[in-house]
């Protein structure tokens, strides 16, 4: 741990490679992504074409946004399990309110629960020091409950996904997914936030050593409250995009994305214990997961076996990756 690093003049080749990986942790991730695509192409020649790439990206984007929530939250040593509920609520509400209101108004209404759940999470975790896992699990369940109550009141109205969301979610322009119009600014925002703003610095600081941050004058609750509100709003936005992609509202629409969003952040090199990681890795992590899903689908094996394999691969990749980038 406390070893001073000496300028290594003639290390072993393996060790040197490790140093390189440790200094550029994205390199092995990109290599893995390329490898998976190559394997896919080898198994089913011709499958890797522009249409497939566009579809993969379209499905990776909502996952990558939710994984962005996880990345920021995990940097502080937390986790946000309520993102699935928040995204589902936003999606379901926009689809039902879209019947009566303008898309703009429906979207605004749809993001209110996101704001509330974010505030609730932030106050519970930042002020009352409830463990993030418990807090967000609880608010997620509460949100699902409210959504069921809400569903009763709109059961006769039916749903209407705003066409603009459908265009954004599924549409292609010149073969490029329109969703990128939303994702590129969102990703740029998160990257800028993490690397170039005071708030981003504090996320890393709080996760690395909360006591040290406190001694430097950082007020924990301010950081945490802002963070969880931000995370919930992003999750809401991801939900809006997802309903545009799936086009069929349900009460558990985005729930299956929750654990993959954690997995994408972890595969991307963000430490679940806080203080280390970044969003670029997470984006690649989300792509890796999507490619992996295609790969397992192509293999035409039973659903159960596929899930087992998926879990095993995620586990192996994460463990191996951490081994590679930890330069100890």
């Amino acid at each position: 741990m406390s070893n001073t690093v000496l300028p290594d003049s003639s290390p072993l080749p393996g060790r040197r490679l490790k140093r390189l990986m440790s200094d550029y942790p994205l390199v092995p991730l990109i290599l893995l992504l390329v490898l998976l695509v190559a394997v896919l192409q080898a198994m089913r020649p011709g499958i890797v074409n522009p249409a497939w790439i566009a579809t993969t990206i379209k499905f990776a984007i909502p996952l990558a946004i939710l994984a962005g929530c996880q990345t920021m939250v995990m940097l502080t040593g937390g986790i946000d399990l309520s993102v699935g509920t928040v995204a589902t609520m936003a999606a379901f509400i926009v689809a039902t309110q879209g019947v009566h209101h303008d898309p703009g108004v429906a979207i605004a209404i749809a993001l209110v629960p996101a704001l509330l759940i974010g505030l609730f999470n932030g106050i519970g975790i930042g002020v009352f020091r409830v463990h993030p896992l418990i807090m967000t699990l609880g608010t997620g369940l509460i949100g699902t409950g409210f959504l069921q109550v809400y569903q009763r009141t709109v059961i006769s109205t039916g749903t209407a996904v705003p066409p603009s969301l459908a265009w954004l979610g599924t549409g292609l322009s010149y073969g490029v997914p329109n969703a990128l119009l939303l994702f590129v600014p969102v990703a740029a925002f998160i990257l800028f936030l993490l690397n170039r703003t005071g708030f981003g610095r504090l996320l890393y600081a709080v996760g690395d050593n909360e006591h040290a941050a406190r001694l430097s004058g950082v007020r924990y609750w301010q950081v945490i409250l802002t963070l969880y509100v931000l995370s919930a709003l992003l999750a809401g936005i991801a939900g809006l995009l997802y309903i545009g992609l799936i086009k069929s509202a349900s009460l558990s629409l985005a729930e299956p994305l929750v654990l993959p969003s954690v997995a994408a952040a972890v595969i991307g090199g963000t430490s679940i214990f806080g203080g280390r990681g970044g969003y670029t890795g997470t984006i690649i992590g989300a792509l890796i997961l999507r490619v992996l899903i295609t790969l397992l689908t192509v293999m035409q094996i039973a659903e159960g076996a596929r899930q087992i394999l998926f879990g095993l691969i995620v586990l192996l990749v994460t463990a191996a990756y951490l081994r590679i980038i930890e330069d100890r």
Binding site: T197, G198, F199, Y204, A205, G275
Partner: peptide, 30 residues
């Protein structure tokens, strides 16, 4: 160990108090 962010750079460690106040949460003049 009470004062340092072990995994962060020397620069970020030294600059930490700059970002602490709410009004300095915005973009950093690198």
């Amino acid at each position: 160990s009470e004062a340092l962010l072990g995994h962060r750079s020397v620069r970020e460690n030294i600059a930490l108090p700059f970002s602490a106040r709410l009004r300095n949460w915005g973009p950093i003049d690198m």
